[in-house]
Simulated assay, not measured.
Amino acid sequence: MRPDRDWRNVIPLHGPGSERRQADGTLPPDDLWNPARIVDEAPAPLRSLVLDLLGAMGVDQAAVEEIRRSLDLTDPSPGEPEQMGAAVSVLRAAVERAAVLGASPEITRIRHDCLDAACVAWADDTLERQATAQRRFLRDVSHDIRSPLNSILFLADALRSRHSGDLNSVQSRQVDVLFMASVTLVKLVNDLIDFSHLDSDADIQVASSPFSVESVVDDVQSLMGPLLAYHEVSFDVRRRETNPRKGDSQILNRVLLNLVSNAVQALGEGGKVRLEVWDGPTGTLEVSVTDNGAGADIDRIQAALRAALVGEALTVTEGWTHGLGLSISARLVAAAGGTLDAEAGETGGTRLLLSLPFGVL
């Protein structure tokens, strides 16, 4: 504390009239709340945070900067929870001290309310900074991992294609395992990168261009070929819709790949996956992906899909492989104005239902 400094000359709080003293030489009750004095009396490590909170409580920003210059304070740092708690305690004590010395109950209540609001804003800002840092770290690490994984995938594909010579049956099986493990890891890394970008629906650009649903389905069937063969799962496609549509074919392609991939990986050898496409009653594009597995807890899947829409990661539910792919699918579908739901299959297993507002041309 610096008792020799006249803080009332550093920052008048209520206009020119706040410079007055009462007849007995004491400060008027309203002048007992002096931000400059509060900051100066705070422990040195907390002064920047206390000043930052005062600004959030409504103290004029020009006054805040004047105090910062007068006390030669650095710009406020985000602060750890323990430091912020101590800074809040300093301000709580200052509010109560002013109340004891004459500040009105109404003014005291308003100051406490403003401090509460400043604490909430700080907490929200801290959570957002942490989430941003986590997403950035996840994206950077995923990019670093993807390059060597792509090299492994390329070499594994070359080996299984016999470009480097013939393989015996044992080697062939080993290379198949290596190839599918590489495919799975590359997909996971791609999902991590996509998930790190999906902060909100506003970040998802939804196109509106003519496309062929049949071409999208054919692409999915072709891309899923190696995975289906490796797991020895049959894939049945039933098209009841062949009209060109207007919408985002990339979203449809990505969602179908994720749903079919999840279904295949949830099954053992001899499993079956069925993809159906048809016109909805209001011109929407309707799609279902059904497997003949043991089934899953539908309530948990639906709860997980709802959680994905508010930014929570999906958890693994027994009987169905969720992973990040389904979480990304839920966000993409919602951004496109559609819905993604789950139900039990008619003869067992799990059925995912996709509805998209991609109208017929």
Rank of each mutant, 00 (worst) to 15 (best):
L185E: 15
S222D: 13
V233Q: 01
S169A: 15
I145D: 10
D4L: 01
S172N: 10
G55E: 02
L259H: 04
M224V: 11
R245Q: 06
S151N: 10
D299Q: 13
D125C: 11
I298D: 09
V95M: 04
D72W: 04
D30A: 09
S89E: 11
T132E: 13
P81N: 10
G323C: 05
L178H: 12
D157K: 07
D4I: 00
L309H: 06
D194N: 07
D113V: 12
D124S: 14
P43E: 00
R111T: 03
I298N: 01
D30I: 14
K272R: 15
A131C: 13
R109D: 07
E106Y: 03
S215N: 12
L275R: 00
T339M: 10
N190G: 13
S142K: 05
Q130K: 09
R254I: 04
V183H: 06
A303V: 05
P3F: 01
S327Q: 15
A266F: 04
F195Q: 11
Q205V: 11
V39K: 00
R139S: 12
L227Y: 08
E106C: 00
A133L: 13
G15H: 14
T132C: 06
L149H: 15
H163N: 14
G337I: 03
A118F: 08
R8P: 01
S182A: 11
R162F: 08
D75I: 06
A344D: 12
I251F: 01
V360D: 09
A98R: 00
Q171S: 12
L223S: 09
L309K: 11
H322S: 14
A304G: 05
S77C: 10
E65D: 03
D116P: 07
L324K: 02
S142C: 10
S355R: 09
L91E: 01
A133M: 10
V177C: 11
A344T: 11
V50D: 01
V206H: 07
L101P: 02
M180Y: 10
L46T: 00
R47E: 00
I11D: 05
R21H: 07
V264Q: 04
L91V: 03
